[in-house]
Amino acid sequence: MFTLSSSRPVLAAVLLALLAGCASQNPYENQQGSGTSKTAKYGGIGAVAGAVAGAAINHDNRGKGALIGAAVAGAAGAGYGYYADKQEEQLRRSMEGTGVEVQRQGDTIQLIMPGNITFATDSSDIASSFYTPLNNLASSFRQYNQNSIEIVGHTDSTGSHAHNVGLSQRRAQSVANYLTAQGVDASRLSTRGAGPDQPVASNATADGRAQNRRVEVTLRPLPGAQ
C-alpha cells in the first residue's frame, strides 16, 4: 500500500509525464483539425499509465520505477500521434498553392480536391493541373505507409443519378490507378463513388455545383498503427 511519503515520487512522475506529453503542440492547431497534437494526447496518456505501472512493478523504489515507466510508455504511446503530425505537416507544405485543402480530425487526415483542378466536365481522365498534386501525394504516401487511403469521388446533381454515381466511381478509380502507377501499395487503397449524394454546397448555383464536384482522399491508421 502507498504511504504519503512513498507516493510523492510517483505523483511527481505522473505530473512530469503529463507535462512531457503536452509539450508538443500541433503547429496547425488554429486551422481545422484536432487542436492538440496526437503526440501530446497519446504520449501523455501512455506516460501516465506507464508511471503507475512502473511504480507497481518496482516495489523497492516506486519513484524510480514510475519515472522509467513514464518515459518508456510515453515514447511508445506518442508513436502514431507523432507520425500523423509529421505527415500532416508535410502534406500541408506539398499541397500549398495547389488548391487542395488539408483537414485533420483526430487520427484522420482528409484532402479535399476541387473539381476545377481534377477532371474536365463529364470526364474521368485526369486533368493536367491534377498531376502535380497527385505526384506530391504519391511521394507522401510512399514515405508514410501506415495509413489506409480511401478515395471518394463526388459530383453535382446535374444529369441522372445513375450516371453521376458511375462517373464519380470512375474518377475515384482513376486517382487510385495513378497513385498505384507511382508506387503506392494498392492494398492500402479503396475507392467509392458517392455521386451527388453528399453535397457540401447548394446545387442551385454554379459555385455550389463546382464545390460539389470534388475528390476526397481520407487517411486513417492501419490496424495496429495506433
Rank of each mutant, 00 (worst) to 15 (best):
S128T: 10
F130G: 13
Y131H: 15
Y131F: 15
T132W: 13
T132S: 15
P133F: 07
L134I: 05
L134N: 03
L134M: 14
N135G: 09
N136G: 07
N136W: 03
N136S: 10
L137P: 00
L137I: 01
A138K: 01
A138G: 04
A138D: 02
S139Y: 04
Q143L: 13
Y144S: 08
Y144G: 12
Y144C: 12
N145C: 08
Q146N: 15
N147T: 11
N147F: 15
N147A: 12
N147Y: 14
S148W: 09
I149E: 02
E150T: 12
I151W: 01
I151E: 01
V152C: 05
G153S: 03
H154W: 04
T155C: 10
S157Q: 08
G159M: 05
G159R: 05
G159I: 01
S160W: 04
S160Y: 04
H161D: 15
H161P: 15
V165G: 03
V165Y: 05
G166H: 08
G166M: 10
G166I: 06
Q169V: 07
Q169G: 09
Q169M: 13
R170N: 02
R171V: 01
R171M: 03
Q173R: 11
S174D: 07
A176F: 01
N177P: 04
N177Y: 04
Y178N: 07
L179P: 02
L179M: 04
T180G: 12
T180Q: 12
A181H: 07
Q182D: 03
G183S: 05
D185Y: 04
A186K: 11
A186H: 11
R188I: 00
R188H: 04
